[in-house]
Amino acid sequence: MTETEGRRVLVVDDDERIRALVERALREAGFETRTAGDGRDALAIAWERQVDLVVLDIGLPTVDGLDVLHRLRADSQIPVILLTGRAGETDRVVGLELGADDYVVKPFSPRELVARVRTILRRSRGGDHFKIVYGQLVIDLDAREVSLHGAPVELAAKELDLLVCLASAPRIVLSRRKLLQSVWHDTSGWTSESTVTEHVYRLRNKIEEDPRKPRWIRTVRGAGYRFEPREAQR
């Protein structure tokens, strides 16, 4: 059985085009999907039919997405990824405080969203530590440890979070703004894109054989950064 086989994802968004886009990307990745266009239908499906994860838009008719999240969290720990098109950080912060596992800001890359779904579902399985493994680079998410060629790599908390974010979306270009949103959540004091540049510099000095010619974390000029994997081991 593959890691996606039999895994069911509920996609909730009142925009039919976005639902179709996300559903198609998930199905191509091997997931089973259900969809809902409003909060009431989403709750009915989540409660009556077992699903493994919910992709949930914040701005929904009938029942707001944050209210849906609050009701789900009342009796369930099902993983939830929030979708938001709102520019401010308030809803994202509230969503995370209510128990959301992650959030994605519109417009978004369907491939990045699928990568985040995979990561969260792996993390929620329990049992053995979930590890991201690319050749000799091993990232143990549960233990929050990194090793390279069998030797431990000491990373600061945000350096590790940044590496996980990049490694969870291999070959996908992530802008500095996107990395700020995903790793620092645009919190006060961490709104400068130079924060990302500095942390990438530190990270490269710790995991790259030659930081001046990075192998793992590539710069895409004018766009951001891309994690370039060696042969993935799953």
Rank of each mutant, 00 (worst) to 15 (best):
residue 211 P to V: 04
residue 231 E to D: 10
residue 225 Y to A: 05
residue 218 R to W: 07
residue 222 G to A: 11
residue 224 G to W: 07
residue 227 F to G: 02
residue 229 P to H: 01
residue 214 P to Q: 04
residue 220 V to L: 08
residue 229 P to I: 01
residue 193 E to D: 15
residue 212 R to Y: 07
residue 225 Y to S: 06
residue 197 T to K: 15
residue 199 H to Q: 12
residue 192 S to Y: 09
residue 203 L to A: 03
residue 194 S to G: 13
residue 204 R to Q: 08
residue 207 I to A: 01
residue 218 R to I: 13
residue 196 V to R: 02
residue 225 Y to Q: 05
residue 213 K to P: 00
residue 215 R to F: 11
residue 218 R to S: 09
residue 198 E to D: 15
residue 208 E to P: 04
residue 224 G to M: 11
residue 213 K to E: 05
residue 229 P to Q: 03
residue 226 R to T: 10
residue 212 R to S: 14
residue 196 V to D: 01
residue 227 F to H: 02
residue 196 V to Y: 02
residue 214 P to G: 04
residue 231 E to L: 12
residue 200 V to S: 11
residue 210 D to Y: 06
residue 219 T to F: 00
residue 194 S to C: 07
residue 216 W to A: 02
residue 201 Y to A: 12
residue 195 T to W: 08
residue 229 P to R: 01
residue 214 P to N: 03
residue 216 W to S: 02
residue 218 R to G: 05
residue 209 E to Q: 08
residue 196 V to F: 04
residue 219 T to R: 07
residue 229 P to F: 02
residue 229 P to T: 00
residue 197 T to H: 14
residue 231 E to A: 12
residue 214 P to R: 01
residue 198 E to Y: 14
residue 192 S to W: 06
residue 209 E to L: 10
residue 204 R to T: 05
residue 222 G to V: 07
residue 198 E to H: 15
residue 193 E to P: 12
residue 214 P to D: 04
residue 221 R to M: 08
residue 227 F to N: 03
residue 219 T to S: 10
residue 220 V to W: 05
residue 193 E to N: 15
residue 207 I to S: 00
residue 223 A to T: 09
residue 224 G to S: 10
residue 230 R to H: 14
residue 211 P to G: 06
residue 207 I to H: 00
residue 226 R to Q: 10
residue 221 R to K: 12
residue 204 R to D: 04
residue 189 G to S: 08
residue 198 E to W: 13
residue 198 E to I: 15
residue 228 E to D: 14
residue 208 E to D: 09
residue 191 T to G: 13
residue 214 P to K: 03
residue 207 I to P: 00
residue 212 R to A: 12
residue 209 E to G: 14
residue 220 V to A: 08
residue 224 G to K: 07
residue 205 N to Y: 05
residue 192 S to I: 00
residue 194 S to H: 13
residue 190 W to G: 00
residue 195 T to A: 12
residue 189 G to V: 04
residue 212 R to M: 09
residue 215 R to G: 07
residue 214 P to M: 04
residue 210 D to W: 04
residue 197 T to Y: 14
residue 217 I to D: 06
residue 203 L to K: 03
residue 202 R to N: 14
residue 194 S to K: 13
residue 221 R to C: 07
residue 202 R to V: 11
residue 216 W to V: 05
residue 226 R to A: 11
residue 221 R to P: 06
residue 195 T to K: 13
residue 192 S to V: 00
residue 224 G to I: 12
residue 203 L to M: 04
residue 221 R to E: 09
residue 228 E to C: 07
residue 198 E to R: 15
residue 217 I to Y: 03
residue 198 E to L: 14
residue 202 R to I: 07
residue 199 H to C: 06
residue 231 E to P: 03
residue 218 R to P: 01
residue 230 R to T: 09
residue 202 R to T: 10
residue 194 S to Y: 10
residue 195 T to V: 15
residue 201 Y to D: 13
residue 197 T to G: 11
residue 218 R to K: 10
residue 195 T to G: 13
residue 231 E to G: 08
residue 205 N to D: 12
residue 216 W to M: 02
residue 193 E to Y: 08
residue 226 R to H: 01
residue 202 R to D: 12
residue 215 R to L: 11
residue 210 D to E: 09
residue 202 R to F: 15
residue 199 H to V: 05
residue 203 L to E: 08
residue 222 G to N: 11
residue 189 G to H: 07
residue 191 T to E: 14
residue 207 I to V: 10
residue 228 E to L: 07
residue 207 I to C: 00
residue 190 W to K: 11
residue 213 K to G: 00
residue 213 K to I: 01
